[in-house]
Each structure stands twice: as C-alpha cells, then as structure tokens.
Amino acid sequence: MKNKLIVSLAPHLHNPNNTTAKMMFNVVIALMPALIVSSMIYGWRVLFVSLFSVACCLLFEWFIKKYMLGGKPTLCDGSAVVTGLLLAFNLPLNIPLWMVAVGALVAIGVAKMTFGGLGKNPFNPALVGRVFLLVAFPVAMTTFPEVTGAVAGGTTDALSGATPLAMMKMAAKGDVPMTEVLSRLEMQSLFMGIKSGSMGEISAIALLLGFAWLLYKRVIKWHIPVVVLGTMFVIGGVAHLLAPESFIQPLYHILTGGAILGAVYMATDYVTSPMTVKGSVIYAIGIGAITMAIRMKGAYPEGMSFAILIMNSFVPLIDKYILPKRFGAVKEAKK
C-alpha cells in the first residue's frame, strides 16, 4: 500500500447539499424573484439600495471579525449577504443611503457580532436593523412612494402613498369608511405587487415563488410560514366576522405589509427559530397572533417585525421545554 490513509470516526460521508454557504445561497436565490419584481415596479434604485445594503453588511462583518473579534473570516458563509438583502427588502425605496448604512451597522454590529457572530445571535439581525431605523427615523421609514399604473409602465410617484395597511388601520380606527378602503385595494394588484410598501414586500407571488424554491431545496420546512399566515388568517377572519365595518377580510392581511416576507424569510431564520417542529408551531402561532394584535389594536400599522423579535426572545425557552418526540420513550416513574 503506497497510499497515505485518513482515519476518522463514522460516518465517513457527508450530505453535500448541507453546507452553511449552500443554504444561504439558496435563500439569496429565493429572494431574487421579489427583487426582480420590485425593480420592475420601482425602478433601478431598488437594485442599487439592495447592493449597497449587502455591501455595508459584508464590510461591517469583515471589519468586526478581523479587528475586534479575531478568528477565521466568516464572509464566505453568506449569512451577511442574506442579512443585507433582507434589510434592504424591509426599507422604503426613497430612504437615504446613510440610513441604510446605519441600519446595516446595527444589524451586523449590534444584533449579530456582539453576541459572537453567526449562530449565537438571539434576534434576527435584519429585523433589529429595521426596527432600529423605524424607531430612530420614523418619517423616512414610513414614507412610501405611490405606485400607479401597470407593471409594464413601472412609474413611481414621488409623493408618499398610504400603504394598504395604513389604510386598513384608518378603517379600524373609524377615520375612513371600510368601503372606501376596499375600493382602493384590489386583491389582484396586491398579489402581483402593485401597491405601496417596502422594497421587498410588495409582491406576494414573487415571495411565494421563493418559498417554493426553499421548500424544494429543503432549506426550510413549511411549518413556520404556513402556521404564521394561518394564524393571521384565523384571527383576522374572526375579527372580520365580528365587526366587518372595522376589520377587513383576512386575506388582505396576508397579502399586505411584510406578512409573507416575514413569515417565509425572517421567521424561519435558523439561528433565531426553534429546533423542533412542535416548537416551531408554537413560535409561529405566537408571531401570527402578535402581528394581528399590533395590526388591529396597536399604534403601528404593521407588527410583523415586532412580533418576530418578540417571539425570538422566547426561542431559548421553547427549545428548553419542547423536546423532539423520542423513539421508544417510556413514562418513567420519577424517583
């Protein structure tokens, strides 16, 4: 035998599809349809802001890892790219670039690297960045361009347009009659993405396409997105049945705002979601319920970000008490 030998413990094979970089790459691919639709509707600035946000995240990650934390560089795992994209998707189109940079710094610097980097952050970095910006710069963060015309035209209005959620909020408060809100919301255009909102959240169909890709690649399981949206639908439906003049039909809730973006891409973040299926379901119900509570009763029109961050904080607790179903578990008499 002339060959040198390697020795290791079993197993001697590894699933080639399971690597951190590959899974992150698949998330990026899944976000592409939404990015394309958004650029078609809002124009090139979408791409520019997204790239800028990704670049900022990569830069901050590299800088902090190299000069403050030490250790091996972690840019190649792609998690900073995902964070950057998701952060951009959560911002309105006309946001100044320096605010994007601040958001990226908070996302990577505060929410992720302070805790030790990938795998150790308790909260979703992109959402922390977004919420920070929302609280710090409320006007810039809630000024959305009005979308008019067809997809092909792609014209955007410089004037600020009320998002569907803001209109729904007005109806719930009784400022605007429900009939008028309904007349301005068309289900079809909501689905396709012709509505005002953050860059990435406007097209439901593009986001669902990405969801299908993630499921096909087995990057995520269906439980969290479906249960989040299902919970929102049920709560919205009950509210609508009880008071149709204040609360809109539940499908509008799912198609508007960051519901799908949040449920599919943010709530499913590995690091900040529970390990087990049972735990995931509890976590997802929590997100759905809190989102609807904020949307219907809270001060903000949208509550997805807050709901996910709140439930993120429960994940360690869920993981401690919701254990996987064990093979051959027997009820042991505690001695």
Binding site: L118, G119, K120, Y270, V271, S273
Partner: peptide, 12 residues
C-alpha cells in the same frame, strides 16, 4: 470523505 472545516452551529 474529507470533512469540511468546522464552523459554528447555526441551529438549523
């Protein structure tokens, strides 16, 4: 068969 470089658990 060579194992890749050990990284952080991402709690997937």
């Amino acid at each position: 068969t060579k194992r890749g470089e050990e990284a952080e658990c991402i709690r997937c």
